[in-house]
Amino acid sequence: MIKFFEETKDKKQYMDLLLIGDEQEDMILKYLSRGRLFVMENDDNVIAVCVVTDEGNGTLEIKNIAVSPVFRRSGCGKRMISFIENEFAGSFRRLTVGTGDSPLTVPFYEHCGFIRSGVIKNFFIDNYDHPIIEAGVKLCDMICFEKELPDKYGTVSEGFAEI
């Protein structure tokens, strides 16, 4: 049976999995201490992890989401995002995420209902000590996505506009 829980004590025990979502440990450590780490587990097997941070003004940001290799392409990543959306519905207005311009991650976030909201030029070049290659693509710019979270009644505001 799949369960979700928040890890509050020993977040670093999940570092191997977090390094799948963000391959430089010092970058992970920058947000891990202030972030909330959620774990998806099945029969004591860790399936996925997700770190989110409160960025102010009603914005919750996914800083890291990673699915164990044996569970990839089975809907677990989307299920983790759905859990986060439900967990924070009514507490935050918007969920954001930044990712490389990769043929693996961009379609995933679009499939989860995120819309493109901007680009941070040279993010991966300026912030990582080595080239980040994903699906044969050298990542340079960060593609920013967002989606509105429902309120506590499950409704999404009419006033949300694409940037």
Rank of each mutant, 00 (worst) to 15 (best):
N64I: 00
N64Y: 07
I65Q: 01
A66W: 00
A66D: 07
V67H: 02
S68C: 11
P69A: 08
P69H: 14
V70I: 07
V70A: 13
F71C: 03
R72A: 09
G75M: 01
G75F: 10
K78V: 02
R79S: 15
S82C: 12
F83H: 14
I84T: 04
E87S: 08
F88W: 10
A89F: 04
A89L: 11
G90I: 01
S91I: 00
S91Y: 04
F92Y: 15
F92E: 03
R93I: 05
R93Y: 08
R94P: 03
L95V: 07
L95C: 02
G98H: 10
G100E: 07
D101Q: 03
D101E: 05
S102N: 10
S102M: 02
L104H: 01
T105F: 09
V106P: 11
P107A: 09
P107R: 11
F108Q: 08
F108L: 12
Y109V: 01
Y109C: 13
E110Q: 12
E110F: 01
H111Y: 13
C112I: 02
C112D: 03
R116V: 08
G118M: 12
I120E: 11
I120T: 12
I120N: 09
K121I: 01
F124S: 07
F124Y: 11
I125T: 10
D126N: 13
Y128C: 12
Y128T: 06
D129M: 12
D129I: 05
H130D: 04
H130I: 06
I132V: 15
I133H: 09
A135L: 05
G136E: 06
L139H: 08
C140G: 07
C140H: 06
C140A: 02
D141Q: 08
D141Y: 02
M142H: 01
F145H: 00
F145T: 06
L149V: 13
D151Q: 14
K152C: 14
